[in-house]
Design a protein around this nucleic acid. Structure first.
Ligand code: MN
Ligand code: MN
Ligand code: ZN
Ligand code: ZN
Lengths: 138, 138
DNA sequence: AATATTTTGCAACAACGTTGCAATTTATTA
DNA sequence: TAATAAATTGCAACGTTGTTGCAAAATATT
């Protein structure tokens, strides 16, 4: 089994189970972000829907993955590259959704631009989601 | 009946029906954005769920409202201030989600910052959603 | 007022998401 | 390694959310 995957799980005090390993494999092997549905399809029949829900939730809590807001009721998830922790992410990149291929990707090299809020507002997180045509589909 | 509301509908070649009027009243009377669920609750028992879905869809297509992406599977909608048209919005503001009161508001005065994309990517829309504590909850 | 067009509500359904609990799997201890 | 403790999984059952077809009702047009 992939040592990197085992390391991710152990580092986060999670039991190494076939379901979690499989889902991490999917993330590591995927160019873009994955929705719950994507994972269910790609994982085959082997895992119960509920297990996928619970696994994503745990990964999110531990800071192993982060989620990407959408306007179509299908949250996408992607691996955190940095050492993120529960509710304390260091990811600071924007996300791109291709209107052609549908892929959602992390643009790791494009940092979140500064946003000046009106007086009285404080911000804890800024999400930037750009949609358009990706490099591959151009 | 509110003349402004009738005007919005007529301008968009939509029949003036009690459901559409009611939903526009809700938007005009609300400080923040509304989810489908919010509208169903606030509208009372008077309208069928399906009518709310269809109305929001039509309003979206006509450019009467715009939607705000979220990470919790509950899209929010807000009135377009400018003269937006089907798939051709002029709104160029960011959105703020308060972690305390839960309100989602359009910050009309905060424009979307420029985002420099990697070579090969083209953008048609940029969504910025800031979460934190709002002016009221501070 | 009569007719044509559009919208609505209902019913039925599909997809998505949640919870409790017993069985299984994984981790820990001896 | 075997026994035990702890955590995870699958199942079943359920609730919520979103979609579609169609006849009835409302609205717009003549
Ligand atoms: Mn990302
Ligand atoms: Mn807005
Ligand atoms: Zn693409
Ligand atoms: Zn607030």
């Amino acid at each position: 089994m992939n040592a990197q995957i085992e390391d991710i799980l152990k580092r986060n005090q999670l039991s190494v189970t076939s379901g979690r390993v499989k889902i991490l494999e999917l993330f590591l092997g995927s160019a873009g972000a994955l929705s719950h549905g994507d994972i269910e399809k790609k994982a085959g029949e082997r895992f119960d829907r509920v297990t996928v829900y619970r696994t994503l939730q745990v990964f999110l809590e531990k800071g192993i993955i982060h989620n990407i807001p959408t306007s179509d009721n299908s949250i996408r998830y992607a691996l955190c590259k940095d050492n993120c922790h529960a509710g304390h992410h260091h990811d600071n990149h924007i996300h791109f959704v291709c209107n052609d291929c549908g892929n959602t990707i992390c643009l790791e090299n494009v940092t979140i631009p500064p946003v000046k809020l009106p007086k009285g507002f404080t911000s804890t997180q800024v999400d930037v989601v750009v949609s358009g045509i990706c490099k591959e589909c151009k």
